[in-house]
Design a protein around this nucleic acid. Structure first.
Length: 364
DNA sequence: TCGATTTGACCCTG
DNA sequence: CAGGGTCAAATCGA
């Protein structure tokens, strides 16, 4: 794989992120008691900082992780959101690195692909509108393809895939199941990320030709982890770095995808390896498809998510090697890289020692 | 008519 | 072999 920008800088970034995580943990710990007494705003903020730092770290290490062995230095996420009953899905599943593969008719490929899927869990509370109905709207267009009664579960599990699967080979799927304890809650498990460039359901997010050109220029083309189109849009058009409002912001820390804005998402990668980030800058964010839109269109103000399932286990390396080679050697893969120059990241990181300060979406 | 949903069957994994 | 995940034909509805 081609190296992106210098690994030294990237490693430094990773170190900074690790430090940030540690600091956030400290902050969270110190605040925990008062949080219990005085509401959770600060605690939530700390939690979000922590979670987002972890996420950022994972992002930073994403590319490098491909060639690294499992490390005991993993930054193990220690917490989930207090209100989240979800735990990390820690099974050693990785991700769908090549959504460009069409729908496999071959069962072996399919199972292999299934194994490679990244997994997020999310939890959304049913709104009054959709209470008693299906899964809450998350801004993406899903098509139900199955339903199954799950052993020990009171409610059946529904299976959805991206509507644009056939058109663009988008491999994103999700499973929706009502929570046993609270039927108003939906446990949502996402697999794979959206590779479709068609506009999400609730807003138009056209992919400009310039974006694709710039992607080529950036040449970060790690394509195995595809982006949410809306996320690309966020990066391209809406991202701004706000280093001043952090303390004033009730909701504080916005990740570029916005999902941390007013929803309580806990990003808890099951594994964050710490080793040399020798690969190019990771292009892809691990992002819950639901959350990319949910800030705008959330059906619920009470939503938690957990990211997990990334475990670069023994099978990972061999699996990914095949796919990486397949992907990088090809020229017609549906590459959608982050449309955000690395220099901007670096600048951002360098200019904000207390990284992350605050991402927020520039909304009109 | 076409896209979405339902549902029984089949396949894969552990 | 059991259970979960997906397929695909049948059905529904706009």
């Amino acid at each position: 794989m081609e190296k992106g920008c210098g690994s030294y800088e990237q490693e430094s970034l990773v170190m900074e992120l690790i430090q940030g995580i540690a600091l956030a943990k400290q902050l969270k710990a110190q605040m925990s008691q008062e949080v219990l007494l005085a509401g959770d705003t600060k605690g939530m903020l700390a939690e979000r900082i922590h979670s987002c730092l972890e996420k950022a770290l994972l992002i930073m290490k994403w590319g490098g992780s491909m060639s690294m062995e499992q490390s005991n230095q993993s930054v193990v996420p220690s917490t989930t959101m207090p209100e989240s009953p979800l735990s990390v899905i820690g099974s050693p599943r990785s991700e769908d690195f090549n959504p460009g593969f069409h729908v496999q008719q071959d069962g072996r490929n399919m199972s292999r692909k299934r194994k490679m899927m990244p997994i997020w869990t999310d939890q959304a509370k049913a709104s009054s509108e959709n209470a008693g109905e299906g899964a809450p709207e998350d801004g993406h267009s899903w098509r139900k393809y199955g339903q199954k009664d799950i052993l020990g579960a009171k409610h059946p599990r529904s299976y959805y895939r991206c509507t644009y699967r056939n058109i663009q080979g988008c491999s994103a799927t999700k499973q929706v199941q009502r929570n046993d304890e609270d039927p108003m809650l939906f446990d949502i498990t996402y697999r794979g990320s959206h590779t479709c460039t068609l506009a999400p359901r609730s807003k138009s997010a056209p992919t400009s030709p310039q974006k694709q050109d710039r992607n080529k220029q950036n040449n970060f083309a790690i394509t195995q982890y595809q982006q949410q189109p809306d996320m690309l849009l966020n990066f391209q058009t809406g991202l701004r770095v706000d280093t001043q409002n952090l303390e004033n912001q009730e909701t504080g820390f916005f990740f570029p995808t916005q999902e941390f804005g007013h929803e309580n998402h806990a990003f808890t990668p099951s594994t964050l390896n710490h080793s040399h980030p020798s690969n190019s800058f990771p292009q892809s964010f691990i992002q819950s498809p639901a959350t990319s839109e949910s800030t705008y269109f959330s059906t619920s103000p009470c939503k938690t998510s957990t990211f997990g399932g990334f475990n670069y286990g023994q099978h990972f390396e061999s699996d990914i090697t095949d796919i990486i080679s397949a992907t990088t050697s090809g020229t017609n893969s549906p590459i959608i890289g982050i449309d955000y120059p690395l220099e901007q990241w670096e600048g951002f990181l360098c200019d904000n020692q207390a990284f992350p300060t605050s991402f927020s979406q520039a909304k009109e």
